[in-house]
Design a binder for these strands. Structure first.
Lengths: 222, 222
DNA sequence: AGTATACTTAACAATTCATTAACATAGAGG
DNA sequence: CCTCTATGTTAATGAATTGTTAAGTATACT
């Protein structure tokens, strides 16, 4: 999974420098030049982690952090501070404001990334559970479990992933290309492979639910 | 609860200075003047956190840290490094060696305590319940005890940790990668090692409970 | 040091899964 | 109603994954 990071700093140079380094590591980066914009952006971008410079004009990092913690949808986002070496006070105040960690300037990319990964790893517990109940089919990704009319049915890995994918947007028709991209990534498989997997799922769910849209693809229907 | 801290530094002045400040905060402090003594003491004292000076003669902080992480009963203890300002390398190497945080010298007691509390707080969240009763299996981490149908069964350490890990989220499928990360950290083990441990557990619990999800991993099921 | 216990690995067996080929069927459009 | 194409079905193959055993290493204990 690619984590999203929101960078907040009033200096463009730093934003660019950090963006470059973080993107190189596979993070999806968004940036803001002040606290207010950061909060607005955070609501839409829904980052996993916010990196805040402590020293910023108008609303400084600490105030921004305090504000973020007040917003219900953002209160659990990880926050990491960037502080200047001498700002002893900031470090303390930062933790009080709800920071999860801080890194001192000058920033060493490797160290920063090490810290970010440590934070994200610790936070992983809060990952979502993906559980869906649609009609008489219930699917639980974490438990790799499918219930059909409250009876457990066994699906092999590919079958499971395929059903899960189709159920992710019930009623939407997914083309064969969509399916191949999602389930097979860039492995090449023959023409009938999908059909066979579809057939196996249908067999196990009494031929309900999965419908063929000829010339287009397949969809999951209630 | 009063947390226990093991202080490790070769300079007596620092030990005294920090002891004083930490005890004032209610921590129970023990000290060691080198890495070897630290490890011996840690086994008996069972601290919640070890504070290690990076720069020490003979075995430095990083080596001590690496050694500590190798000892099963100590591998989960929090470790905080003390580094001189300029030791950029130490910071990186320290995280690699398994440190949880670091503080630069000169040490400001307030900041150190703030960091310690942050670490302990973070760690508390991830603390697991020590005693679980699921179906006919009861497991107690502290006592390292497993009851199957009310009969005590003996599991070796790896077996115990593996069962405990799987039981921590019943029904959830853990990938082999998950399992290796949790049980073996970054030791490399062969493909069949997990299977063998699983087999041993199954043998001792009559083949119930642990299910294989082929291509995905293993799960604990009632 | 010597013994017991635990851990890991190699070698092989067993199982399950994914894919394909070959053929069958369905349905749209002429 | 015929043809063409897309999809359905079945069974076989072999690839991938996991299970099992026994023996070799490592570690802990006395």
């Amino acid at each position: 999974m690619n984590y999203k990071i929101l960078l907040v700093d009033d200096e463009n140079d730093i934003l660019e420098f950090l963006s470059y380094n973080l993107e190189k590591e596979g993070f999806i980066v968004s940036t803001a030049i002040n606290g207010k914009l950061a909060i607005q952006l955070a609501k839409k971008f829904k980052p996993d982690l916010i990196i805040l410079d402590v020293m910023m004009p108008e609303m400084d990092g600490i105030n921004t952090c305090t504000e973020i913690r007040k917003i219900p949808e953002l209160e659990n986002i990880l926050i990491l501070f960037l502080t200047a070496r001498s700002e002893e006070y900031s470090e303390l105040a930062g933790f009080d404001a709800g920071a999860d960690d801080y890194v001192t300037k000058p920033i060493k990319p490797k160290l920063l990334i090490s810290r970010i990964n440590a934070l994200l790893k610790r936070n992983k517990i809060s990952e979502k559970v993906n559980n869906m109940l649609i009609g008489d089919i219930q699917i639980d990704k974490e438990k790799h479990l499918v219930l059909y009319k409250n009876e457990e049915i066994h699906l092999a890995r590919k079958e499971f992933n395929l059903l899960y994918f189709l159920m992710s947007v019930p009623g939407k028709v997914f083309t064969r290309e969509d399916i191949i991209t999602e389930i097979w990534k860039d492995t090449f498989v023959g023409d009938r492979t999908i059909d066979v997997h579809i057939r196996k799922i249908r067999e196990k769910t009494n031929n309900h639910h999965i419908k063929t849209v000829k010339g287009v693809g397949y969809k999951f229907d209630i």
